[in-house]
Design a protein around this nucleic acid. Sequence first.
DNA 1: AGATTATTGTTAATAAAATAACAATAATAC
DNA 2: GTATTATTGTTATTTTATTAACAATAATCT
Lengths: 209, 209
Amino acid sequence: MKQLPHKTIARLSQYRRSLLMCYANGKNHIYSHEIAKIQHITAVQVRRDIMLIGYTGTLRKGYNIKELIDIISKIIDSKDVIKVCVVGVGNLGRAMVNYFSGKRTKLSIVACFDTDPNKINKKVTGVKCYSVDDMKKIIKQKNIKIGIMTVPADKASETADKLVSAGIKGILNYTPKPVYVPKDVFLEEYDMITSLEKVAFFVKTHIER
Amino acid sequence: MKQLPHKTIARLSQYRRSLLMCYANGKNHIYSHEIAKIQHITAVQVRRDIMLIGYTGTLRKGYNIKELIDIISKIIDSKDVIKVCVVGVGNLGRAMVNYFSGKRTKLSIVACFDTDPNKINKKVTGVKCYSVDDMKKIIKQKNIKIGIMTVPADKASETADKLVSAGIKGILNYTPKPVYVPKDVFLEEYDMITSLEKVAFFVKTHIER
DNA sequence: AGATTATTGTTAATAAAATAACAATAATAC
DNA sequence: GTATTATTGTTATTTTATTAACAATAATCT
Ligand SMILES: NC(=O)c1ccc[n+]([C@@H]2O[C@H](COP(=O)([O-])OP(=O)(O)OC[C@H]3O[C@@H](n4cnc5c(N)ncnc54)[C@H](O)[C@@H]3O)[C@@H](O)[C@H]2O)c1
Ligand SMILES: NC(=O)c1ccc[n+]([C@@H]2O[C@H](COP(=O)([O-])OP(=O)(O)OC[C@H]3O[C@@H](n4cnc5c(N)ncnc54)[C@H](O)[C@@H]3O)[C@@H](O)[C@H]2O)c1
């Protein structure tokens, strides 16, 4: 299959979650416009995404939910569980561990790291916190592939470097500081401050115009 | 000025933060490629964004940091402080309040809301938590303009509705459930689960190819 | 002083994403 | 059984965002 657009991948993840809900409620078929309504996007967008992954529904009956879930899963899940770690177990890091722990089957947070002696060797919702000094060792040992960064902003780039040199293949950076990674490592950055400022900007222009 | 692209707004917020740092370190001028390096984007992108806001630097001297900060602030900040509330003071909500409280001058979290009696009327890092039942009243009273949603997913749409009917003008939705808002309310949604799955997808395709 | 270099600002080109248009057709209505 | 309707799948168009190209010129070099 051709390379899927990033945005499509993101939407597929969301479709799947909605589809799982519908399926759990006993629904077996769904129309593009129903999916669209749930996601608050257009039906064309949905059909286009589904077209891109090569699945076809049935005319006037819609898509078979079970089949669609399976196809999406085949695309976005990997065969084996992908192991994830969280670096920096502060407020945000703890929220993350808490939220994800024991939830996903194909993505599993198996370790976290911190510099704070009060946190090292404790457990966070069942996930052990190690010293950053052992990062390389643990990541290799446990075969961790993804790192979520929730360290203070001024520790962002050193943390990214450590993750990369430990052999991590994907980073989700929640610090507001952009980091550099070699191009064989996938990087996703999200800056909450910027998001809030963006909302504020549009609110402002709305109010002041 | 023409309507600025959303992406430009987001980058301006990030430029400003970097510029403030540089300025604090005693730097007075900066080249487009220096800004680009900090943000890990291209210099053209930076120049283009700066062009769009109508600022001009000086040839071979770069941009005057102070001036640029002021111009960006004039664009993205509003004249008065914009008040923000957080709905759902769980792990994530608490992290947010904690992080933002007392930090920004033009954006201020002034209230949070929850349904849990153990949280109502307590303070979260100095910010009072009210009952959701008083949401409308408090939002109007305090003239709150932006709501950050960190409630459980199944409470997302009712929460959005309440915020809208209370007169909120911007929503930052951190639940994985898309919500509907009328078009005079600016909506920004961010789904952490999807982000992580996206990283996992690219890691997988990298590993399996 | 004249040549060279580094840098901006802007237009042009390309790429990515979203939306629109519409042909095909199964299901339903009459 | 024919017409109508609702829905998919796909191509075409438009919009948005990024990248490239390059002219203009201030600063520096020789
Ligand atoms: N909490 C939020 O809602 C929020 C909002 C916007 C941005 N952020 C960003 O997220 C990041 C974390 O925020 P937070 O509120 O959780 O901060 P926090 O201070 O609560 O947590 C930071 C954690 O990182 C640990 N740490 C420090 N240096 C480290 C290192 N070198 N290696 C590993 N761990 C280290 C600290 O011990 C602490 O446990 C920050 O970069 C912040 O800017 C957070
Ligand atoms: N924590 C994370 O890292 C993380 C990651 C991905 C997604 N999310 C999403 O963020 C949201 C919050 O996550 P969390 O981990 O903080 O959950 P949480 O359970 O810790 O917090 C939810 C809070 O909302 C309150 N609440 C419940 N119903 C409410 C209502 N109707 N009105 C107001 N408050 C109400 C609860 O009392 C609780 O304090 C969820 O939608 C979750 O899916 C969180």
